[in-house]
Amino acid sequence: MKYAIETFNLTKKYGDFTAVDSLNMKIENKTIFGFLGPNGAGKTTTIKMLTCLIPPTSGTAKVAGYDIIKEPNNVRQKIGMVPQLVSLYKDLTVKENVELCADFYGMSPELKEERINELMEMVDIKYAENKLVRHLSGGQQQKVSLVASLIHQPEILFLDEPTIGLDPTTKRVLWDLISELNNEGHTIILCSHDMYEVELLCDHVGIINQGVLAAFDTPQALKDAVIKEKESKVAKILKKIKEEDEKGEIIEREGREISIFIINLTDKIIEEITELPMVMEIKKHHSNRITIKIDEGSENGVNTVIRTILDNNGIIKSISTKDPSLEDVFIKVTSKKVE
């Protein structure tokens, strides 16, 4: 089986409102797939259909090779879900919660015991197995939720904002766990608004906007698409400059930002940089950092700025240019109105 999930014109309508509109996507087996989208874009509705909680209005999907309409119980046996809201019984202990889940999946007593111990050790929650869930921290509860969702060894694990509200250390622990689970062969479907998390973990990313799949690729390919778009923009600007020179008109130009940290920043350095023809704007920040907006049309603009600093005996500690991030991709894709 090549694909863990395949959707075929998957659609969900609520009256006149189409929450998910003819969704077609294929998620490869044993990969981590980041499912992104703004609030209300149809992400949760899609997940609910894929986890057989709600039926689609039309179309269908295959999850772990089973049809969500015809074989929902087979699908349920193959999937696990860690919801955003920790949905454990607060007055049961950690172990009782996990045992309950195991029995709902019909596991044999021996396998159940072995698997519970194995998972609890893996997520490091065994020490709290006899504690009531209500007495655990948010991070601990999320770990228990993960154990409960993995107890039946699902092929596909859905994670809905698994690290929301967690401290940075706990977040990292969970990220490591997600990678480890993927290495073990689980396909992970990760819904998140944390772009760093998605960029760090996911092999592929799908962005849903207004019920339609607006982008689907690897994070790098999506970022490259933005770079390519920028490059084509640069070409257009160069053309514009040429036209401007020919016509003697001033056309508004776009710039790119660089941020430089100069240990011995002086007013003279700022003055010299300001006078450079390719510098469109310069801002001085605290702790000797300056941000410069350089004309996109200038090919050696960055070099000239650096040379000017060095000529004035400036010592550069760091320099950074702003490359597109997954967040830029997200904003770009989701800001487009669906026709």
């Binding site: 909680l53 929902p72 999937i79 879900m81 919801p83 949905s87």
Partner: peptide
């Protein structure tokens, strides 16, 4: 909690 139960077969 109920949703978790209904996600099982």
């Amino acid at each position: 909690e109920l949703a978790r139960l209904f996600m099982t077969p």
